[in-house]
Amino acid sequence: MYEFTYHKAESIEAAIATLQQSDDAKFVAGGQTMLPTMKHRLASPSDLIDLGGIAALRGIEVNGDALVIGAMTTHATVAASAEVKKLIPALAGLAGNIGDPAVRNRGTLGGSIANNDPAADYPAALIALGASVKTNMREIAADDFFTGMFETALAENELIVSVRFPKPQAAAYMKFENPASRYAVVGVFVAKTKDGIRVGVTGATPCAHRGLRLEAALNKDFSPAAIDSVELPVEKMNSDIHASAEYRAHLVKVMTKRAVTACG
């Protein structure tokens, strides 16, 4: 790890102000990606702005027919939340299966989606549930938020405040884990929403995406069999030492079927 200056922000405004005053500052939420990257000397921010002291970024609220989860809420908190389990149990299940207990106790919703790892779980949920990301500047629909590998719509001085998840009629997340990292080789989140079936797919492509072909098939026939005839573009899939593009495309369909079955 290279030397850096540590700041603990007490408000969103203070965090932004510090960022603007610094040379090459980064926000740190749970630090589950940032800190290992720094330890490997692959990142060298001049300043780290710790968001852990900002109360406004924490907590889970039920707002009408939606859940609003603060950006700094840990995976463990989401997994254990009675509100989340009641409104969107699939989201609690997803959070409870990220990484290991140490990761879940430190890692946060905001950190995960801001990082937008191509194999992270949360992006699939945001996309499938039609969530919206509230920042200090605006509200961004999930469909517009994840823009590329490790890239999001967030502007330079923009900080995630919370994520609003509308309650679906039913939802399920199925993840095929990398045996080594336990990240998603493929993760598929299927949700029955008021606007029809929505499918969020992570792990398969450089950036989590909406499974439009899968949605089309499921909107006609919400059954596992409906997936059989869907053709997925193998050439767009990731390919690495753990899974070829062809295998990933196959797994997307298998995980989708399982999620459909789990939706009941």
Binding site: N178, P179, A180, S181, Y183, I241, H242
Partner: peptide, 24 residues
Amino acid sequence: ALLEGCRYDSEGQLLTASYMDYAM
């Protein structure tokens, strides 16, 4: 039998150099 496969690429870079890629 199931998990552990140390892999180098043809240029000799170790592809499985951490627990992210080497499954114990």
